[in-house]
Structures are given as C-alpha cells and as structure tokens.
Design a protein around this nucleic acid. Structure first.
Lengths: 148, 148
DNA sequence: ATCTAATACTTGCAAATTACAAGTAAAAAA
DNA sequence: TTTTTTACTTGTAATTTGCAAGTATTAGAT
C-alpha cells in the first residue's frame, strides 16, 4: 500500500491554488472564505447564520463579521425570520448572485481544463471516484466533519 | 455533464476539516501551514527557503516568519549554504522529524478510515483517480500552480 | 576589474482574520 | 413567571498575511 497522504497532500495543495485564483472575478475582490459563504448561501434554502457557519465549520463570531463585510459589499442580505426573531435569514443580493455565478463559472472552466487532459473514460472514472470519496468522508466518524 | 464544482467544493471542504484536526499531534500545537512546511522540508532534498516557499505558494516574507517560529519550536534548522552565502538550507531537527512522522501517521490513519468504507476495487479506483487528477492538474496551464 | 543588476532573505509596518469572553435579545423549558 | 437555552453581536487581543523597504551576496555588463 502506497502513501495515501502524499497523494492527498499534493491534491489539496493544488486545489488550494485553484481556489485562490478563482475568487477575484467580476471586479470584486472576494476572499476564499467569502466565496465559500456565497456558495453555501446560494445552495441552501433560506439558511440562518448558524446553519451556514456550521456547514463551513467557522466560528460563529468570525462568521458574523464575514457576513457583515459581505453585506457592506452589497452581496448578501439579512432578513429577520418572522417565526423566530433571534434568527437572521441569509440571502444573496442580485449582485451576490452574479458574483456567485461568476465564480462558479470560473471554477468550472478551470476544472474542465483540468479534465481536458483525460479521455472520456478516465474523466468518468475520476468523477465517480470523487463522489465515492465524498460519501466515504461523510460516513467517517473520525474525520472530515466540522465537529470539535 | 454535472456540476463539477459542486463535487470539488464539498471534497476540498471535507479535506480542510481533516487537515485542521491532524496537526496537533505529539503535544505540539502545529498550524496547518506549518505542517505543510514540515512536510515539504522532509520531502525535498536540502531545500532552500525560496524553494519551499515557492512550492507552497507562500509569500517569502510570510514564509520567513513561519520558519522563524518553527525554529523557535526547535522543529526546523537553518544551515547556510556553503556555495552561496545568501541561501539558507532548511532541515528538520530530530524533534521535527518526529512531529512530521506523527502527523503523517495520523493523516494516514484518517485516510485509511475513510477508505475502509469502500471495497477493494473502489479503493484502487479512487487512488488511481487521484493520481490521474494530480497529473492533470500538473499539466494544466490555467490553474493549480502557485503562480501569481 | 569594477560597477550595476539580480537574487535570497529579513524587518517595519498595516490590514485582515481569527477566536475567546462577555454582552443583548428572544424563545423554550421549568 | 422565572430560568435556561439559543441566535447572534461586539470588545479585545493574538495570529497571519503581504507590500515596501532594507541588507548582504552573487551574477552580469562594460
């Protein structure tokens, strides 16, 4: 059995580089963390602060401030939950949606370029593998969860 | 064609969590960045500061300071290059090697646990896929390199 | 051989990011 | 109704980051 860690160390580092570049699309200068926040707000249905913070494994106080700056940039909106006045529902503004989509597009472009170095069979195998990996990490009790 | 980005977003986030936990082995409290530095110093042959900083895509000034703190922790050693007095050669101390190995072991343990949710065939497929992915990213001109 | 330019690194800032502690306000439980 | 819990915000302080500017050494140009 070879050294698994080696493989994953290289992979995650490379993806780190990819993510770094991705985010300054559309004139805005978005940090990596912020791009993850935009992504999750877009993905989840009427999410609260807590929900997103937990998904991303970010401390809620840090998250609170990150959201504040996204609001200042006019990318995110906070709406009080009518059923529970403690809760703030997060959503993207029109600009937020635009930025989120720009980043998404940019990322997919990069990824497609990476996959262009493979043939159709390899491509499908790799995609299936990533899915499998995600499922296995989700099952794992020891790691990969934002627990603490 | 499905949304590639979705897949990778989830994967990298999960690996982020994994990496976060990994590093506080052996009594020392090592940050993620520092663990990457230890890893690369161990891997490369008599590397200079520049070399490691470039591999990791870190700004050299930031890197300089990170190395300073690793030296203070007695995990890393700097030796002046006899052929070029500007250059510092980095190496791990005995403790550094120990810590690097602890982290490596810990990571492999986590990864093995993740892979334990797959059968032998799946496992091999996934590993082969990651390799392929790494190669493709290396080939890519557009992304995944520490360029700026 | 000497002067200039490039390289390898270090320090001075200042900005951004982080998390713990302590706070407010609202809802749920006792 | 009182107490506890939950959702979130702010104070503060530590850490991390990178640009600008510095030193020292080597390589290149004349």
């Amino acid at each position: 059995m070879e050294n698994l860690r080696e493989l994953f160390q290289v992979m995650t580092r490379r993806f780190g580089f990819l993510n770094k570049n991705c985010c300054s699309t559309g004139g805005y200068d978005i940090s990596l963390v912020q791009s993850h926040i935009l992504y999750e707000i877009d993905k989840q249905h009427k999410p609260s602060m807590q929900q997103i913070a937990e998904t991303l494994g970010t401390d809620i106080t840090t998250f609170s401030r990150q959201v504040q700056s996204l609001i200042k940039m006019n990318l995110v909106k906070k709406t009080p939950d009518p059923d529970d006045k403690r809760v703030s529902i997060l959503s993207l503004t029109t600009e937020g949606v635009y930025i989120a989509e720009s980043i998404d597009q940019q990322m997919n472009e990069y990824l497609n370029e990476v996959f262009s170095h493979m043939n159709e069979f390899e491509r499908e195998t790799v995609i299936r593998s990533i899915k499998l990996l995600n499922e296995s990490m989700a099952k794992s009790s020891k790691c990969c969860n934002p627990l603490e």
